[in-house]
Lab assay of single mutants.
Amino acid sequence: CHSECLGNCSQPDDPTKCVACRNFYLDGRCVETCPPPYYHFQDWRCVNFSFCQDLHHKCKNSRRQGCHQYVIHNNKCIPECPSGYTMNSSNLLCTPCLGPCPKVCHLLEGEKTIDSVTSAQELRGCTVINGSLIINIRGGNNLAAELEANLGLIEEISGYLKIRRSYALVSLSFFRKLRLIRGETLEIGNYSFYALDNQNLRQLWDWSKHNLTITQGKLFFHYNPKLCLSEIHKMEEVSGTKGRQERNDIALKTNGDQASCENELLKFSYIRTSFDKILLRWEPYWPPDFRDLLGFMLFYKEAPYQNVTEFDGQDACGSNSWTVVDIDPPLRSNDPKSQNHPGWLMRGLKPWTQYAIFVKTLVTFSDERRTYGAKSDIIYVQTDATNPSVPLDPISVSNSSSQIILKWKPPSDPNGNITHYLVFWERQAEDSELFELDYCLKGLKLPSRTWSPPFESEDSQKHNQSEYEDSAGECCSCPKTDSQILKELEESSFRKTFEDYLHNVVFVPRKT
């Protein structure tokens, strides 16, 4: 048989008469490798580009789960590009990614509803959504962080984005990388972005840091009482949809009607710091009717980097990364020049730590249904340095008659930039024990000054392991946590139920 035959053949030295091919099969003959313009397919066939392209389009058009959109890589027609490569849609070739590779997620039936953290986790790592997304989240724990972890990498949506009755959302900033909504599939009414009845939605994105392009379709905003109209108009300008909307697409009466839409800028007039305090004062603000001013709200939190936005980490279910302080308005003076500047002394802060701070007014709604208010920009203030805590785990070892090696770990709280350490030492008198000992005694162990690591005695271990207080009263049991108490109650309830079950099964009433 021919060298490319495997198993047997019907005619000697003829690659077209093989029972099976050793390498690849091409047009009725066995070959060692697939010549151009053919590609290896499933490690035994040679196919042309049209064959591989037909497989790709067949799966793409069917949208069946589990099928493969075949691509070409290293002269092979394979189910998908290997790690580190992405497909070129024009020629199906796998090309190296520039940075992290995109991950295209194809949605069944063309859309997916995100109504819980669990459903959001199914899209973790996706960068391109081939379909439409509907966000409908009523509640949950730590929602802002969970949504950002699972949806934060999405850069492109081919269909539309719909935010509907998501009472738990305060902001859409968890879509931190969303840059493009194509609108290839539109919501009824030709809408590519749809926001309806979101009672706590206050911000779409921080438009000073976020760009969003909507290729096709219109915007729809109705019944978002805490979303200011200025935020919607800003989205029109940034996304390129200005002029597409009709009169009733953006409701003037049901958007922002319960919001404090600040239209003035508060400026800080005085800032002073110490290692654990920050004193702030800002310019006074009074609405047209000074009785509408209820006070100020001061927001602050630790910020290692200057990239904080107002609604980071917030949701309507209680999660809030900001510390909020309510401040009463100052006494009002008739003389504008003698107006008191409101302020606040922030206490209990960490030394040498940068804080993000902003302040906003708290006002009631005027009778004319106009909203007044003022808010400052987010500023960054760093507390002063102070003395560091003591170095940890000092170790001293003498390696000769004239040297001592000293080692330690950095302090747990540096409280500033540590530039150097101060080492103090003092000579001590020799131990009298060394002169009084009889060095001729056998088995004498000389006193040693070398360091030995501390260890816990058996008594201390027994005390720590004991669940009861000892007789001397030195140790006591740790208080039980809520989960331990709940577990004990469940076990007790189970024992009672099981005992009742045994009584009912074992003891049967005697027939009379």
Rank of each mutant, 00 (worst) to 15 (best):
K103T: 05
L107N: 09
L108Y: 07
E109W: 14
G110E: 13
D115R: 04
V117A: 14
T118Q: 01
T118S: 07
A120F: 05
A120L: 08
A120S: 09
E122G: 09
L123F: 10
L123K: 00
G125F: 04
G125D: 10
C126W: 00
G131D: 01
S132M: 01
I134W: 11
N136K: 04
I137F: 13
G139E: 13
A145G: 09
A149W: 14
N150F: 14
L151A: 05
G152S: 03
L153Y: 05
L153C: 12
I154C: 04
I154Q: 00
I154V: 12
I154M: 10
I157W: 00
I157G: 00
I157F: 02
S158Q: 08
G159V: 02
Y160N: 07
L161Y: 01
K162V: 14
K162S: 13
S166R: 00
Y167M: 15
Y167T: 14
A168G: 03
S171A: 08
S171E: 10
L172V: 13
L172S: 02
S173R: 07
S173I: 07
F174N: 02
F175Q: 00
R176C: 09
R179G: 11
L180E: 11
I181F: 01
G183L: 01
G183A: 05
E184M: 02
L186M: 11
E187T: 08
I188T: 14
G189S: 06
Y191I: 14
F193Q: 00
N198T: 02
N200S: 09
L201P: 00
L201S: 00
D206K: 15
W207S: 04
K209A: 12
K209N: 11
H210W: 08
H210K: 13
N211C: 10
L212Q: 05
L212K: 01
L212T: 10
T215L: 06
K218P: 11
L219G: 04
F220S: 12
H222S: 05
Y223N: 07
Y223C: 07
Y223R: 10
N224L: 05
N224T: 05
K226A: 09
I232A: 10
H233V: 08
H233N: 06
H233P: 02
M235W: 03
E236W: 15
E236S: 10
G240E: 06
G240R: 10
T241L: 14
G243Q: 11
R244N: 04
Q245L: 06
E246R: 11
R247K: 09
R247Y: 07
L252V: 13
K253E: 12
N255S: 08
G256A: 06
D257Q: 04
D257C: 11
Q258F: 03
Q258S: 14
A259R: 07
S260G: 05
C261E: 05
E264T: 08
E264H: 06
L266Q: 02
S269I: 15
S274M: 14
S274L: 08
S274D: 14
F275Y: 05
W282M: 03
W282T: 02
P287L: 09
P287S: 06
D289P: 02
R291L: 07
L294C: 06
F296P: 02
F296Q: 14
M297L: 14
L298T: 02
F299D: 00
K301D: 08
E302D: 09
E302I: 07
A303C: 02
N307Y: 03
F311S: 08
F311C: 05
D312S: 08
G318P: 09
N320A: 09
S321N: 15
V324Y: 11
V324W: 12
V324G: 04
V325A: 14
V325S: 10
D326L: 13
D326G: 06
P329W: 04
P329Y: 03
P330R: 11
P330G: 05
R332K: 09
S333E: 14
P336L: 06
P336Y: 02
Q339L: 12
N340D: 15
H341K: 09
H341E: 10
P342L: 09
G343K: 14
G343C: 09
M346T: 03
L349M: 05
T353Q: 07
T353G: 01
Q354I: 15
Q354H: 06
Q354R: 09
Y355P: 00
I357G: 01
F358R: 13
V359M: 04
V359W: 00
K360S: 05
T361D: 01
L362E: 05
F365Q: 08
S366P: 02
E368K: 14
R369C: 09
R370W: 11
T371V: 08
T371N: 09
G373N: 03
A374E: 02
Y380F: 12
D384R: 06
A385W: 05
T386A: 07
P388F: 05
S389H: 07
S389Q: 04
V390N: 12
S396P: 15
S396Y: 03
S398Y: 10
S398C: 13
S400T: 08
Q403H: 11
Q403Y: 15
I404N: 01
K407W: 12
K409A: 12
P410L: 11
